[in-house]
Design a protein around this nucleic acid. Structure first.
Lengths: 231, 231
DNA sequence: CGGTCCCTTGAGCCACTTCAACTCACGTGG
DNA sequence: CCACGTGAGTTGAAGTGGCTCAAGGGACCG
């Protein structure tokens, strides 16, 4: 990873686009910006791991961060894909305590770090920021709970299609994910994911090549089921 | 439901025990208390349902509240059992928006209500309260995510045993739940839950009667697996 | 005492996982 | 440039956990 000081201009613009900072005064956004340092990570770098205490509030500037959890047996489940302007850790800055999640760079990425003490000192001056954070946490809870419901009563096919649709809404028709990554989001095995993807390809709904899935007919995904998740 | 004004003494004591209000000044706890009105609910009363906008912060004074979600097909999954001093809704007061959860009285219960505007006006004066809320939300996220992991790689038996152990830690050896309620917590069918419970009874780990499960050997539950959930 | 809710158990089935084998794409180092 | 290794994708066959459907028994309530 490489540390840089960076220009403020584009950063201010990024912060103003971020859902976390929505509705707080521009000059405050700018001050948060000034507190931030940035670091570059190359694909598959680990940003933090389970048991690491939390030192900083982290926002994705560019790239993609995967936040997941490993089971005792080494199985990995992905809970969050944070893209530009998405925060990576909302709880940690407030408690400082380590959590059982691992954050990795899913692509080459640039992240903004604000030291947690500095972040907190500022944060409590802006109730709207707190409301935003709690609202986003609410979406995280809801999304996880939706996934539990899905695990109970939906088939792998339906779950995977919903994941595809959610990714499509977030990233557009070209998805740079391997079948294994899709499986980790769906909560199934790589083989099962591959079988479903093969089926969708034969139906003409998607196209795929190594490490990439292209959505050809997004509406066909919706036909299977409604409602998106929050990833 | 019956509305009462109630005495302050025991309420102050309850508030001071609540994890949400931990670490904030006693006089502040008392002021939150003064803002609260209480209501009684009888078993199976609905406290709020999906689509109801949130009007108040709610704390359980006495009894037990079940917070769950219904799938399109009518299947119910329970995410939270709130007992005395537990908050029922942490997100709602901040956003005011309706959420897709239903809260029901699992037993005859008394709840304290603080109107959300009044609650918010006070809340932002106590950063520790905000930190507590965010920490509790973190536990909710973690618990849901643990359940997702469990759904993927654990058997119904292991999941159900973990639920039993968690309930045991929270309520003691006598659990007043039907097999159906246990199934809703485990994410399985009533029949499967019953089968597992039957097996545990034959092993001498539990005893049961209509609507009640008694844990005889809690250590035997732990033998199956570690780690508790947050319910 | 009839009704309703809860508990109990059996039998069958099917969606997924598991295990296994093979192909293909890509990069790397000899 | 080829040879090799690795990681991704692909497909088959087998086994099974737990869901579904079904039917009955027992407890509590009005």
């Amino acid at each position: 990873m490489i540390e840089t000081s960076g220009h403020l201009g584009p950063m201010v613009e990024l912060f103003s686009r971020a859902a976390v900072f929505k509705g707080i005064p521009q000059n405050a956004q700018k001050r948060f910006c000034e507190l931030a340092g940035t670091k570059h990570y190359t694909k598959n770098d680990i940003i933090f791991k389970a048991e690491d205490p939390c030192e900083a509030f982290i926002l994705v500037v560019d790239g993609l961060v995967r936040v997941s959890r490993y089971s005792a047996l080494g199985k990995r489940i992905t809970y969050l894909l944070a893209g530009p302007a998405d925060p990576v850790n909302l709880i940690g800055p407030f408690t400082g305590a380590p959590r059982s999640y691992v954050a990795e760079a899913a692509q080459n990425s640039t992240l903004a770090f604000i030291h947690r003490k500095a972040f907190l000192a500022m944060a409590f001056n802006y109730p709207q920021l707190i409301i935003n954070i709690i609202e986003i946490l609410g979406q995280a809870v809801d999304s996880s709970n939706s996934r539990i419901l899905d695990m109970v009563e939906k088939s792998v096919i339906q779950r995977l299609i919903r994941i595809l649709y959610t990714l499509y809404k977030k990233f557009g028709p070209v998805l740079n994910f391997t079948a294994e990554e899709i499986a980790e989001l769906t909560g199934t095995t790589t083989e099962s994911a591959l079988r479903v993807l093969g089926r969708l390809r034969r139906l003409g709904t998607i196209e795929k090549s190594r490490g990439q899935i292209r959505i050809l007919r997004a509406d066909a995904l919706l036909d299977f089921d409604g409602e998106e998740l929050w990833i």
